[in-house]
């Protein structure tokens, strides 16, 4: 029987070798404890977030954590029954039209997925039409928009206006990236903003947990 406390700690320590070793044991046991293993990995990602908040980890560590969590999820997914992958909620994520930066978006994605949220990642350079379409199809409760360029703020404003015009008043919107400030958040019409990936993921989790 795999030691899930050890798995959680290993994930928090970003100890890739140990994480993969324990997940290998889970698979070797037939995968019956895959749900517990996934929960341990998610709890380990919470530790990663805490270490980021404390300053021990920084962006390179979050990038690695995202990669490690993706590895873990890929290993566990075939072992999980469909009913066991029910998520906390659904979220649409994109880097906005005119901007192709995806590092920050991908970090946020990894942290949000680790929090048990199903992410519909539309990629980069995404306009309002595609986002509204994805909200309609997915039934997502949260929209997260990312951008690094100065004019990303304008794209965000257009997208949020289109989302509201399409009747998605209940969809919570968070914006993030270098140019975003509290003032811009208000202008854009978003519900929250952050330039900190861990904080942004936490806000999304809190919304969907409420």
């Amino acid at each position: 029987m795999a030691n899930f406390e050890e798995l959680k700690t290993a994930m928090g320590d970003l100890d890739e070798v140990l994480v993969l070793q324990i997940l290998g044991e889970v698979a070797a046991d037939g995968g019956d404890s895959a749900t517990e293993a996934l929960a341990a990995c998610q709890a380990g990602m919470d530790i990663v977030g805490e270490k980021y908040e404390s300053g021990e980890y920084f962006v390179a560590d979050l990038i690695f954590a995202g990669d490690l969590m993706a590895e873990a999820a890929a290993l566990l997914k075939p072992l999980l029954a469909d009913t066991e992958t029910i998520s906390l909620g659904k979220l649409v994520l994109a880097t906005v039209k005119g901007d192709i930066h995806d590092i920050g978006k991908n970090i946020v994605k990894a942290l949000i997925e680790a929090a048990g949220i199903e992410v519909f990642d539309l990629g980069v350079d995404v306009g309002a039409e595609a986002i509204v379409g994805c909200l309609q199809e997915s039934g997502a409760q949260v929209l997260a928009l990312s951008g690094v360029l100065t004019f990303a703020v304008e794209s965000m404003t257009e997208i949020v206006a289109a989302v509201k015009a399409a009747g998605f008043d209940d969809v919570k919107v968070i914006v993030g990236g270098a140019p975003v400030t509290a003032e811009y958040c208000e202008i854009i019409g978003a519900d929250a903003w952050s330039i900190n990936a861990a904080e942004g993921a936490g806000i999304c989790r809190d919304w969907l947990s409420a």
């Binding site: 970003l14 890739e16 962006v59 390179a60 990038i63 690695f64 590092i103």
Partner: peptide, 11 residues
């Protein structure tokens, strides 16, 4: 690149 170097620093 940003991602590759970040992974290598750990691996």
């Amino acid at each position: 690149g940003i991602k590759g170097t970040s992974l290598d620093i750990r691996r």
